[in-house]
């Protein structure tokens, strides 16, 4: 910028020292967050992807083997059995959440959005399990369902169903579904809250208009509210998907151990990763196979997110409200 002779006075020179500062502050604001995030989140992920392409030698060095580890994971009979078992268990887990947790969350949110008396209290209490550590939740249910304590049996007896009781967590046939339902119990608060937030964001005028147009309460929900909250349901679905592949570790490790007892019937990708990486019993820990399992998980999540972004989110139009 040009300076002319008019501003040669001393005060002006003084002032110029306090000129607009450079753009250094932008760097100062951003650098710490970007650095910590890069070093402890982005870099490890990239490094895991890289490690999955190597194999360790006995002398501690590593050799590049391309997609060899992935071939092992997918086609070596021993690995493939474990991988596909864990993967399909994750799918079951996901399925149970989608058909039980999210519809239940939707129902509770829909009822809460009618603003019943004590609505705030219901909402607060239903959210309690979500706050607890998965470890604690796991143990609570382990105790309740334990045949030793007999609480579950007593409770079923109170409604005349004592005959139905089985030690569900210990049976290969029911362990996985039981664990899934425990997880549903814990996390239903999240879809409930998200959907509730979306529902109360719908302007009252719109509902009033529908009522004047003669729609019943049920029809209003079905034809007016539901279409408007579809984007939120999409978000709930993708959050369920991601959580299912990673967060399920804590619960299963706590209740059933790293082997996904009984007999791997509750083994999921998270426990498989943990076992592969750290070793268990006779099996030695393997950094490179561990990185491979983690990378497979990364790709599985990437596929889910891509499908969500490409298909679901584009279709589910967001309405201005």
């Amino acid at each position: 910028m040009t300076q002319t002779a008019t501003d040669s006075a001393a005060p002006a020179a003084l002032r110029r020292r306090r000129k607009r500062a450079g753009r250094l502050h932008i760097v100062v604001f951003l650098a710490p967050a970007v650095l910590i995030y890069t070093i402890f989140s982005v870099y490890p992920l990239a490094e895991s992807l890289r490690l999955s392409l190597y194999d360790g030698l006995e002398d501690g060095s590593a050799v590049w083997i391309g997609l060899g580890n992935y071939a092992t994971l997918l086609f070596d009979p021993d690995w493939a059995r474990q991988f596909w078992n864990a993967f399909s268990n994750n799918l079951v887990l996901f399925f149970v959440h989608m058909v039980v947790q999210n519809p239940l969350g939707l129902l509770l949110a829909a009822l809460l959005s009618l603003a019943p008396r004590f609505g705030g209290a219901y909402r607060t209490l239903i959210f309690v399990p979500t706050l607890l550590s998965v470890v604690i939740v796991g143990f609570i249910w382990e105790l309740i369902l334990s045949p030793l304590w007999g609480v579950a049996e007593t409770l079923l007896g109170a409604v005349g169903l004592a005959g139905l009781y089985q030690p569900w967590l210990g049976l290969e046939s029911s362990a996985l579904v039981t664990v899934s339902l425990i997880s549903v119990w814990q996390y239903v608060g999240i879809p409930m809250m998200l959907i509730y937030a979306a529902l109360i964001a719908i302007p009252d005028e719109l509902i009033d208009a529908a009522r004047v147009d003669g729609l019943s309460g049920f029809a209003i929900f079905w034809k007016v509210k539901l279409p408007l909250i579809l984007p939120t349901l999409g978000i709930v679905a993708i959050l369920t998907y991601i959580g299912n592949f990673t967060a399920s570790f804590d619960l299963i490790y706590s209740i059933q151990g790293a082997l996904g007892a009984p007999n791997f019937s509750t083994d999921v990708m998270g426990t498989l990763l943990f076992r592969t990486f750290f070793g268990q019993q006779l099996q030695l820990g393997d950094v490179h196979m561990g990185a491979t399992v983690a990378s497979m998980l990364f790709f599985i999540i990437l596929v889910g997110v891509t499908i969500y972004l490409a298909l679901v989110q584009r279709r589910l139009q967001r309405y201005e409200m």
Binding site: M1, Q3, T4, T6, D7, A12, R16, R18, K19, R20
Partner: peptide, 14 residues
Amino acid sequence: AIGGEIVNDISPAD
């Protein structure tokens, strides 16, 4: 210019 002084590079506060 404010009061005869070119202020292009002077901060708002000054």
